[in-house]
């Protein structure tokens, strides 16, 4: 289950030329702000259309600009967690998770499955609380449960830790490692933090402004090798 992207994508402000493959496990997109990491993720999610090139996952083409092919976001069967958890404050955390099951389960099953996923991210106790009262870390757990509840094979993580304190960050990071391995997902994470890359990723894609420049295999936790790859001296 490999994501392949070879496309030029316009964010509206700039164009990014993206070439990489993401295999099962966690692929980190690393590079300076404005280099196009989140833009490439938005295109994978179907929120942006490539100007040229293709995006495919597991032999299914998501987009092919030359053939004017663009699979709707709803039909890509992906999960996504963003910097802003994007939870609906008029729904409870449980209901926020349950919306990912709206088309596949009846009401009782939805409640049960949503409860299950909240449990998997250690957030079952939050189920009925007012969503607006949750901390950043709690909101990201709920967002992660929603992303996984739809049984995606591809998980997109766009700076999911940037609003979290250190404790929440470590906890959510561990959860992601555990769940991606257990569910055999292909996950792509956009991050500015090398510690996130070192802790999470088994593949690294480096971005420069407007393009991807390199792709490397990583062994999780090998920070010295990682530092060498991104040009740091430690």
């Amino acid at each position: 289950m490999t994501l392949k992207i070879a496309a030029k994508i316009s964010s509206g402000l700039f164009v990014v030329d993206v070439h990489y493959e993401a295999r099962p496990g966690i692929t980190a997109l690393f590079g300076p702000s404005g280099s196009g990491k989140s833009v490439s993720l938005a295109a994978v999610a179907g929120l942006l259309r490539p100007q040229s090139g293709t995006i495919s996952f597991n032999e299914q083409q998501f987009a092919n600009a030359e053939k004017s092919l663009h699979v709707r976001t709803q039909d890509r069967k992906i999960g996504m967690v963003s910097q802003n958890a994007a939870l609906l404050s008029h729904l409870s955390p449980l209901e926020n998770v349950a919306i990912a099951l709206l088309n596949s389960h009846d009401r009782a099953q939805r409640q049960e499955r949503a409860s299950h996923w909240l449990g998997r991210v250690q957030a079952e106790h939050l189920a009925k609380l007012p969503t607006a009262s949750l901390s950043g870390g709690e909101q990201q757990r709920v967002a992660l449960a929603r992303a996984l509840a739809g049984a995606p094979q591809l998980l997109l993580l766009d700076e999911p830790f940037s609003a979290l304190d250190q404790t929440s960050r470590i906890a959510v990071r561990s959860l992601i490692i555990e769940l991606v391995a257990e569910l055999k997902l292909t996950a792509i994470i956009v991050t500015h933090d090398l510690i996130d890359v070192a802790a999470l990723a088994n593949q690294l894609v480096l971005f420069e402004p407007g393009r991807t420049v390199a792709s490397h295999e990583l062994i999780r936790g090998q920070t010295a090798e990682l530092a060498r790859l991104v040009g740091l001296t430690i």
């Binding site: 999610a45 179907g46 929120l47 976001t73 709803q74 994007a86 709206l102 929603r146 992303a147 739809g150």
Partner: peptide, 10 residues
């Protein structure tokens, strides 16, 4: 919020 709902399959 709307994008998150589309990604969730709505």
């Amino acid at each position: 919020l709307e994008a998150a709902a589309r990604i969730a399959g709505l």
